[in-house]
Amino acid sequence: MRIDRYLKLARLIKRRTAAQEMASVGAVRINGRQCKPSSEVRAGDVVEIAYPSRILTVEVLCDGENELKRCAPGEAYSVREERRADPEEKPW
């Protein structure tokens, strides 16, 4: 599944266009590598998302579109780490 679609369906980012923009500017990484909005994400991958005030690292638990639509919030991923981002420094 595309990373932008996954972020939207897993409720990590509210809009798919916002997920696309974040991936384009480098605020999303899959397994430590910068990705494009069309990059594929699979179960077991580690995704890092740099929000303006924090950095969230999650592990993908389910990656099927139908699974994600039926999942309750938080069942699509497990949080590995959450830390504050320095506002004066870009995380990537």
Results as ranks from 00 to 15, higher is better:
M1H: 11
R2E: 07
D4P: 02
R5G: 11
R5Q: 13
Y6D: 08
Y6M: 04
L7I: 03
L7F: 01
L7R: 00
K8Q: 10
K8Y: 08
L9G: 04
L9A: 05
L9K: 01
R11F: 00
R11H: 10
L12W: 05
K14P: 05
K14C: 00
R15I: 00
R15Q: 03
R16E: 01
R16M: 02
T17N: 07
T17K: 03
T17V: 08
T17D: 07
A18S: 14
A18R: 12
A18I: 10
A18C: 14
A19F: 00
Q20T: 11
Q20W: 02
E21N: 11
M22R: 09
A23R: 00
A23I: 04
A23D: 05
A23K: 01
S24T: 11
S24P: 07
S24N: 13
V25D: 10
V25H: 13
G26N: 05
G26R: 05
A27K: 04
V28P: 02
V28Y: 00
V28I: 10
V28C: 01
R29W: 08
R29K: 11
N31A: 09
G32R: 06
G32M: 07
G32K: 05
Q34V: 15
Q34R: 15
K36I: 10
S38D: 12
S38C: 05
S38E: 12
S39A: 14
S39Y: 08
S39W: 05
E40Y: 15
E40R: 15
V41T: 03
V41Y: 01
V41E: 01
R42I: 10
R42K: 14
A43F: 03
A43N: 06
A43L: 05
A43G: 06
G44I: 07
G44F: 04
G44T: 01
D45C: 06
V46A: 09
V47C: 04
V47A: 04
E48Y: 02
E48G: 10
I49K: 02
I49G: 06
A50T: 10
Y51V: 05
Y51N: 04
Y51K: 00
Y51H: 07
P52G: 03
P52L: 06
S53Q: 13
S53N: 14
R54Y: 11
R54L: 12
R54V: 09
T57S: 10
V58W: 01
V58F: 01
V58Q: 05
V58S: 02
E59V: 10
E59F: 09
V60K: 01
V60S: 09
L61R: 12
L61Y: 07
C62T: 15
D63A: 13
D63G: 11
D63W: 13
G64A: 04
G64N: 03
E65H: 12
N66P: 15
N66L: 15
E67T: 07
E67Q: 11
L68Y: 00
L68A: 02
K69F: 08
R70D: 14
C71P: 09
C71Y: 08
C71E: 09
A72I: 11
A72V: 14
G74T: 02
G74S: 02
E75Q: 12
A76K: 01
A76G: 10
A76L: 08
Y77K: 06
S78I: 13
S78C: 15
V79A: 05
R80E: 14
R80M: 12
R80Q: 13
E82M: 08
R83F: 06
R83I: 06
R84G: 15
R84Y: 12
R84P: 12
A85F: 06
P87I: 03
E89N: 13
K90V: 15
K90D: 14
K90H: 14
P91G: 15
